[in-house]
Amino acid sequence: MTIQQYQTIKQGGPFALVTAPSPKPGKNEVCIRPPAVSLNAIDWKNLLFGALVPSWPAVLGIEGAGIVESVGDGVTSFKPGDEVMNWLQRSQFNGAFQEVYTAQEVAVAKKPAALSFEEATSLPIGYLTAAGAIAIGLKVPFPGFSNANTTHEPPQSILVLGGSSGVGSAAIQLLRIALPSATIITTSSVAHHAHLKSLGASTCLERAAQQDTAALKAATPGGAGVDAIIDAVGASVEAPAVYGALKSDGPKLYSLVITRPGVELPQGVQATLIDGQYILDKEPGAMNYLSRLLEEGKYKLPLKIDVVGKGFQAIQSGLDKIPQHSGTKLVVSL
């Protein structure tokens, strides 16, 4: 049997629809047919710069939602016909932009019936990265995680840089779940402030405040600074003033989402680099926890979805929109 892959022929494009063998799941793998896929910044970076593409042609895409086609040995949580959402750690020809792809069981979760495939595909990578930034970087235990770290005093004041990003808006919600009484301060364009407060932010500041240590500290309890920072967008590269928002006698925790090079950390900052895989390595049930939060109504769509088109051909034009969009998640229906 064969499938159609939307291959990127070389760095910068073009794309081509290519017939390829239908994948077969290996041990602990799930094959999924996606009615919808997400477009992420890393897809755009891979297309333009070959950021994580060792050779061409390649199939891009790291996030989808669909129907389970088949499962490999050892898979116990899913069966053919299940509706799921997932992240995948792509390889040369195993990306989301094709008719059937393969994902690790640990990176797959049941799709709540109340969500469309387009809504579900917008969730996994932002949630996983935010969960890692909090549980690993800030050492904050989640009530739904089996490997919760409870040996550290959790931070009570957190600054989330880039609150209107997928990771930032997910982090605000997860922080409020894990730390109900914490002060959560975030930066974003003013157009997103009302939405971010609805997700759990205590205070929203204009993005320009990232360049102003005094403005950041003025928003913290007693003006003393914050215990921790989650940098969802690599803001500190251009705005090192954010480090000054850390409380001088606090733990100085800093979770940095891997988005760009050039970060220089001051002495004394306890920094952790985070991507989507980190939390799955520590907490194999992380995706199941996402499903549970959604089913219980405790977790909302972090971003409004923008369906940019239907069919594989909509992917290329959709990726062109990545640098300009803000506060939305770009999705393609297949």
Rank of each mutant, 00 (worst) to 15 (best):
G12A: 07
V59N: 10
G26E: 12
I67W: 00
P35I: 01
Q5T: 12
L48G: 09
G61A: 13
S70P: 10
P35Y: 02
L47A: 07
L48M: 14
L60D: 09
P57V: 01
A58S: 15
L60H: 09
G50E: 11
N40W: 02
V30Y: 12
V18F: 02
L47Y: 06
F15G: 01
I3V: 13
I42E: 03
G26N: 10
P54L: 01
S55Q: 13
P21A: 05
G66P: 04
V53N: 02
E29D: 10
A41M: 12
I67P: 00
G66H: 03
P23K: 04
N40Y: 01
S38L: 07
I62M: 12
P23F: 09
S38Y: 04
Q11W: 04
Q5Y: 04
P35E: 00
P25N: 08
G66V: 02
S70L: 07
L48N: 15
I32Q: 08
P35D: 02
A16E: 15
C31F: 00
D43E: 11
P21L: 01
L47W: 13
W44K: 11
A51R: 15
P21V: 02
A41Q: 14
Q5V: 11
W56K: 08
K27A: 12
F49P: 03
K27T: 13
K10L: 05
E29T: 07
T2M: 04
R33A: 12
Q11Y: 07
G64C: 08
N46L: 04
A36N: 00
L17F: 02
S38R: 03
